[in-house]
């Protein structure tokens, strides 16, 4: 097990390296350091000298990948690529193009993101499983058919409509919650109700359908038939056997997304002006602050790798037949 985890960590290294090179190439093709400087210096009274100055202060005056003028080893180390990516691997994200420390910002903005994402996940999971169980319970009745049709209908609506509609009806017309915003501590609740509600609602369609197929697969297995033949009631079989056995795919499915919760929801956060990592990323894209975007890409990849690892581990925990080697 330990060996396996260590191996996976080593395997992650070339992966992250690949991500890093790819993003670096992509972003530096788009934006030369000159462009970044001009972007940040604004419109009025910008001269070549000011641009040079900015580049030098931020360490962008080096060559991109290969420094031919430097001695020996520094041919590689004295380049923008080396200087900017080594820090990433040590989780030192450096300074954004607009001058703030990215690491500090990420630490601060992580919490609001989690405050939205975690309740959405948990409530969503509960609601979806409940509905899916109900549909399995009433299978082959008109309730199931309406349920399936409803799910397809819910799935066919763009998430943007849920957000726009929710904000319009609940916050604007009914005045039940603040339209947008965020606060620390307990007072955050009133700001979170609506985003969480909308997040859960927009996931119901696909979620319920997915869990329903999981349960159905389980229901048709022989042991369930045996249990029923034994005289267990419908509800008992469902909760004692079906739910418990279906928990394996459900759990592992959840574990994959756990780390990515940190990244926040891009759209939800910017609609509700929640100062999380999602809106941080969007702002960075819109203002073309690629130092932040690069950091977020890297962070995303790391979390993805962790997610994969967690899935593997959780498999062994819930299903003793699986052994990692």
């Amino acid at each position: 097990m330990i060996h396996y985890i260590i191996r996976r960590f080593l395997y992650a290294f070339p992966l992250l390296m690949g991500v890093n090179i790819l993003t670096f190439v992509l972003f530096f093709i788009i934006n030369s350091p000159d462009d970044m400087a001009r972007m940040q210096l604004g419109q009025k009274h910008v001269t070549e000298q000011a641009v040079e100055n900015w580049k030098q202060q931020r360490g962008y005056d080096l060559p991109l990948l290969w420094n031919a003028d430097a001695p020996q080893q520094e041919k590689i180390t004295q380049t923008i690529f080396y200087q900017k990516s080594v820090g990433l691997f040590l989780f030192r994200f450096g300074v954004s193009d607009s001058g703030r420390n990215i690491g500090a910002d990420i630490q601060e903005r992580m919490w609001p993101s989690l405050a939205v994402a975690v309740p959405t996940l948990i409530v969503g999971l509960l609601v979806n499983i409940c509905f899916a169980l109900m549909m399995v319970l009433f299978r082959n009745s008109y309730l199931e058919h309406t349920g399936i049709v409803l799910c397809v209908i819910l799935m066919s609506v763009s998430s943007l409509f849920y957000i726009i509609g929710g904000q319009f009806f609940i916050a604007k017309l009914l005045r039940l919650v603040p339209i947008s915003g965020y606060d620390d501590g307990i007072s955050a609740i009133k700001f979170l109700i609506l985003p969480v509600l909308i997040g859960v609602f927009s996931g119901i369609g696909s979620g319920v359908r997915w869990y329903r197929t999981l349960f159905l697969e389980e229901v048709e297995k022989d042991y369930v038939r045996t249990a029923r033949a034994k005289g267990l009631s419908e509800t008992q079989t469902l909760f004692r056997h079906v739910l418990r056995n279906a928990m394996i795919p459900i759990l592992t499915g959840v574990v994959v997304v756990l780390p990515l919760l940190f990244m926040g929801s891009l759209i939800m956060e910017s609609f509700f002006s929640i100062p999380g990592l999602g809106s941080y990323t969007i702002d960075a894209i819109n203002s073309q602050d690629f130092a932040i975007v690069r950091a977020m890409v890297f962070l995303g990849s790391v979390l993805y790798v962790i997610g994969l690892l967690l899935t593997d581990i959780s498999y062994t925990l819930v299903d003793p037949r699986v052994r990692l080697s």
């Binding site: 039940l176 919650v177 947008s180 606060d183 007072s187 609740i189 009133k190």
Partner: peptide, 26 residues
Amino acid sequence: VRLPVLMLLAAFLSACEVSGLNNPYG
């Protein structure tokens, strides 16, 4: 009544009195 958790309860207790549930400030 400012705690939305008790929103429904509050609704029944004093539906006509409540105001400012949507206050974005403390």
